[in-house]
Amino acid sequence: MRAWTCGAFIDVDRWLRAAKPWVLLALSAPALWLWGMALADRLGANPAEALIRGLGDWTLRLLCLTLAITPLRRWTGWAALAGWRRGLGLWTFAYALLHLLAYAWLDQGWDGHAVLRDVAERPFILVGVLAVLLLFPLAATSFDAAIRWLGARRWRALHRAVYAVAGLAILHFFWMRSGKTLYGDVIAYAAVLAVLLGWRVWDAVSRARGRAPAATGR
């Protein structure tokens, strides 16, 4: 799609295709910065907690961005955005996995029994772990070969689980913040995800109505 800017045409799709590898590469920077600052003991009084929460924050940001790709593509007509969703989804999984591993290492010292006990005793840990576990099959089937193996219909049904992941992630974040009654960012993320989920429902209903045969009167 071409956009008219400053008296000249810009091929937005071409620009998006060219920028994608650089943007995806740049998404490693927040994790590298957080780990570097933590190892240098420059993340405040509790660098382990700051690292774990920072990785969790980036997981939510990338999840919102991944879910925004399809409606943004539909609204703008920028077809090249379709190629961004897979990379963003894989980065979402990577940050979620780093978040979980940082918790298991820095909070629980790689003690599997302690992790299981924490999961059983603290609901917000349980829903967070469930969200990461749900992301595993989505990441594992994010490639073209998996789509061919599963079939497009089953693949799409499986990947709708990302909305369950979003719900669990917000619940995890809410319960984690509830101890300090800090809900501003929780509300912001929940609002964004609610809008994106609402758009998905509206889009599904609109498509179903479009496929339905017209009623005939007698």
Rank of each mutant, 00 (worst) to 15 (best):
S142A: 10
L138C: 06
G44L: 00
L62R: 06
W75T: 15
V23I: 10
A29P: 05
L55N: 00
A40I: 02
G54H: 05
P123R: 11
H113Q: 13
A166F: 01
M37L: 15
R200K: 12
P137R: 06
V186Q: 04
L116P: 03
V165P: 02
A96S: 08
R86M: 06
L60D: 08
F136M: 07
V195W: 11
G109H: 04
G217Y: 12
P71A: 08
A140H: 00
S28M: 14
D13P: 01
C64V: 14
A157D: 15
K180L: 05
I10Q: 09
A19F: 09
W155Q: 07
I125M: 11
D118C: 06
A8R: 15
L98Y: 05
G83H: 10
I52E: 06
V205D: 09
R207V: 14
R156H: 15
A50W: 03
L34H: 04
Y95T: 08
P123C: 12
Y189L: 05
A191D: 08
T70P: 05
F124V: 05
W175Q: 02
A38E: 14
W199C: 06
L101P: 07
A204D: 12
L98H: 02
A191S: 12
L34F: 04
G184P: 01
F173A: 01
A19N: 07
A38H: 14
L98R: 05
M176E: 14
W35F: 14
C64A: 15
D203A: 14
D11G: 08
A68L: 12
A8V: 15
R209S: 13
G89Y: 05
E121M: 09
L39D: 14
A79L: 11
A131D: 02
R86K: 13
L138R: 01
D11W: 09
R207G: 11
P30I: 04
A50L: 04
L98C: 07
A94K: 04
S206G: 14
L63G: 00
V119I: 10
A140R: 02
F136G: 05
L60Q: 07
R73T: 06
W33E: 09
V205A: 13
V119Q: 00
V12M: 10
R53M: 09
G109C: 05
R177L: 11
